[in-house]
Design a binder for these strands. Structure first.
Length: 769
DNA sequence: CTCTCCCT
């Protein structure tokens, strides 16, 4: 019964989505062309509706699947949930992300996956995506590293399997560049004819609405049968390259724009650059409350004027803006003791922060319905957010956006090998995306805290991630796709020569590539690891140590599990929460005394996990709070460790002497619990393995108590949040996980451990010539 | 004394 209601509700929703009027046209394009670029703003319905259209039109017959990729896990799982309520048979909709899958072979017809998950599936299990009829790559405009690699993989797959249809969904107008990438010179020849034709159909699309059901189905059905008949008959790539009797040409592609459901957004600029954009953001927000405040308090409960979303660059700025705004509001509402009149004018608001390192319960405030207090007092919301609100999450009920014009952006410096994180001006594309957040529920306004001239001078697009990150992972993935020469792999955006040679050099140093940039035996092994190369190398070192005869028996029993723990902790950020007040620091010192290893962060995290391993369960909420442990991170690290250990056991479990030992079995629990091991010996063994993976990130103590990287002699400091900083003894050499820009102007490193120079000389001889 | 945002 209640299902019925939900179903009817969504059926109605489905029909009014903008994409519905273009259903026939889109299906026809997918029929005729190998590649379709679908341009449409978020909310136009492409991610939820297109897979259903394809299912309804037979694209999943013959045990085939429609797969839709997403850059984020939450999007993949929530889209699957949503769409399963829209179809007659919910069991045909599924998802697959790391650690979580609802896929049922033979039943699932529409599947939402993360692009990272599909990339791994593609590289390792099903290189031709043989059960997939249509692959939809969503949010392609974000140009994440995984999306970009997936595009490259798919371009390669299409040469062997031209029948595979590709739909690329992008929110911006760089559609041409996607099409150019896929169909290249061919496209140039035919662009005018077909491109125009499709765009014209789009504009007259409304007239075809009545034909949507029934009329076109018959011929479609016929084509479909012939299509899959051919595939299963083993049609070769060349047959299909030529197109067929229907005039289809799967080597070509086309573009369709879907009308958005976006409301108009007025954009306002400042005349003069602002000197302090945090202060200006707060002032602008308060002025909006003043100006249209009357709308909220005049008894119309259904219209409160809409909320205000402010984009700032850092969490720190967000916190200070919240404080500034709250102070201003409380002084303006209590002054003269006549607060009720002020409030009636709407000059009262809740100020909410939103950035990723906030605890989940604070973040979720933004998504809660307005409290009775807020409704009663006509209180609106001012949300101060970082870039998280630009694409990752959608803040509801926003009518005003204030855009400071800056964001914190990562980039990789190939000379120092350091990851940097720097506040930069955003791109025009990013500014448009921010403004668009104001028009989702009603006509909105965007206040840009920079001049129109400054806007015109911004870069058109944000540089894609491949041009801003470390490339060892990219190179290894390309190798895993079976490409010998990395440079021959066709990427949409080309990485810099410097970053590429840094990546190749690092992989050579790690023993994954030989002098001619071919995978070594070790490299072939590392390609299969679901971890970055340095972690993979570290895990391999632990397996080696476990097996070696000169390893003390007790260490041999512990080392693989210990290094698995280190690997898992490296995949999560902020396992420990940072104290803020003096009192908290005292409790922190007490709590840490229990698990601390003065050698640094790696072994300390292993000691924390000893508590978990000994009791056999994750620490309680209370215990996590007392120990300054971020419980969500602990749970996540625990899951990752479990997955990694299953991976290692599958791959190496049967080998030599290691099969008898159970890495996380009762025997280990007993050893760890009764501490019948030499802690220094254990600490040293763990750090030797860490060094085997991370010697490219080694630094030596220099003048003035600072460290200098062995590779290139760049200054780097132990992060103040590292246990090595607070509790460690000074050590001549350290190895670190990664770097980031510290608050003190320099480059900070974390996690850090002290290591022995001898290990470095053995493992990284080329840094010592 | 802090780290934009994600992913296998």
């Amino acid at each position: 019964m209640s299902n019925d209601v939900v179903y009817r509700h969504y059926t109605h929703e489905r029909r009014i989505l903008p994409i519905a009027s273009q259903r026939t046209q889109i299906l026809r394009a997918i029929e005729l062309y190998g590649v379709l670029v679908l341009v449409g703003e978020t909310g136009c319905g492409k991610s939820t509706q297109l897979p259903q259209y394809l299912y309804e039109n037979g694209w999943t017959d013959g045990d085939m699947e429609v797969i839709c990729t997403q850059p984020r896990r939450i999007a993949a799982t929530s889209l699957a949930m949503r769409v399963s309520t829209e179809v007659d048979d919910p069991s045909i909709v599924g998802y697959s992300v790391r650690f979580d899958s609802s896929y049922v072979p033979g039943v699932t017809r529409i599947r939402y996956v993360t692009d990272g998950w599909l990339l791994r599936e593609t590289t390792l299990l099903d290189p031709l995506l043989s059960r997939c009829s249509v692959l939809i790559i969503d949010e392609a405009h974000e140009r994440s590293l995984n999306t970009e690699l997936l595009l490259g993989a798919v371009k390669k797959i299409r040469r062997a399997r031209p029948q595979l249809r590709i739909v690329i969904c992008s929110a911006t107008l760089d559609a041409e560049s996607f099409l150019e990438y896929f169909v290249g010179g061919r496209r140039r020849r035919r662009k005018c004819k077909n491109g125009r034709e499709e765009m014209t159909i789009k504009r007259t699309g409304g007239g075809e609405k009545n034909n949507d059901d029934g009329v076109n189905d018959e011929p479609r059905q016929r084509k479909r049968k012939s299509r899959w008949g051919k595939i299963h008959d083993g049609t070769t790539a060349n047959d299909a390259e030529e197109g067929d009797e229907d005039g289809r040409d799967l080597t070509d592609g086309t573009i369709i724009s879907v009308d958005g459901r976006q409301h108009p957004v007025d954009v306002m600029y400042v005349n003069e650059p602002v000197s302090d954009y945090v202060k200006s953001t707060v002032e602008t927000a308060l002025r909006i409350l003043e100006e249209d405040g009357g709308r909220g308090g005049d008894g119309r409960d259904d219209d409160d004027g809409g909320d205000i979303l402010c984009f700032l660059a850092t969490g720190e700025e967000v916190d200070s803006a919240v404080k500034m705004a709250e102070d201003a509001i409380s002084s303006s509402t209590t002054i003269k003791g006549d607060s009720s009149r002020r409030r009636k004018r709407g000059n009262d608001a809740s100020c909410l922060p939103l950035y990723s390192s906030l605890p989940p319960n604070v973040q979720s405030q933004v998504f809660l319905p307005r409290s009775t207090d807020e409704v009663r007092r006509g209180k609106r919301r001012i949300i101060f957010a970082t870039n998280i609100a630009e694409a990752s999450v959608t803040v509801p009920n926003v009518a005003h956006v204030i855009d400071c014009g800056y964001a914190k952006m990562p980039f990789f410096d190939p000379y120092s090998g350091f990851d940097r994180l720097i506040v930069c001006p955003i791109s025009r594309a990013s500014a448009r995306q921010r403004a668009g957040r104001a028009g989702r529920v009603r006509p909105g306004r965007c206040y840009r805290l920079y001049s129109e001239d400054a806007y015109d001078r911004l870069e058109a697009e944000t540089a894609p991630e491949v041009q801003r990150c470390e490339l060892t992972t990219l190179i290894m993935t390309i190798k895993a796709l079976g490409v010998k020469n990395v440079l021959s792999f066709d990427l949409m955006s080309v990485p810099t020569v410097e970053a590429l040679s840094h990546g190749l050099e690092s992989l050579y140093a790690l023993g994954a590539l030989d002098e001619s940039a071919e995978l070594t035996d070790l490299g072939m092994e590392m390609v299969y690891f679901p971890t970055d190369v340095r972690t993979s190398r570290m895990l391999l070192a632990s397996l080696d140590m476990e097996r070696r005869e000169d390893t003390p028996p007790m260490i041999s029993k512990l080392i693989v599990a210990d290094v698995l723990t280190v690997s898992a902790v490296l995949q999560v950020k902020d396992l420990f929460r940072q104290p803020r007040t003096e009192g908290q620091w005292r409790s922190y010192d007490n709590a840490m005394a229990d698990v601390l290893d003065r050698s640094g962060d790696h072994v300390t995290s292993v000691h924390l996990f000893d508590l978990v391993d000994h009791s056999g369960k994750i620490l309680s909420e209370d215990e996590c709070r007392d120990r300054f442990v971020n419980r969500a991170a602990l749970v996540r690290a625990f899951d990752v460790r479990d997955q990694l250990s299953r991976f290692l056991r599958r791959r190496f479990g049967g080998n030599g002497g290691s099969s008898s030992s159970s890495w996380f079995g009762p025997k280990r629990r007993e050893i760890v619990g009764s501490r019948v091991y030499d802690p220094d010996e254990r600490s040293e063994a763990i750090r030797k393995c860490v060094t085997a993976g991370y010697f490219t990130n080694a630094a030596r103590l220099g003048d003035g108590g600072r460290y200098y990287s062995l590779r290139g002699n760049y200054a780097v400091s132990v992060s103040p949040s590292s246990v090595l900083h607070r509790y460690g003894e000074s050590s001549e050499y350290i190895v670190f996980g990664r770097t980031y820009d510290g608050s003190r102007g320099g480059v900070d490193a974390k996690p850090c451990s002290s290591v022995n120079g001898l290990w470095l000389r053995q493992l990284a001889p080329h840094y010592w010539s």
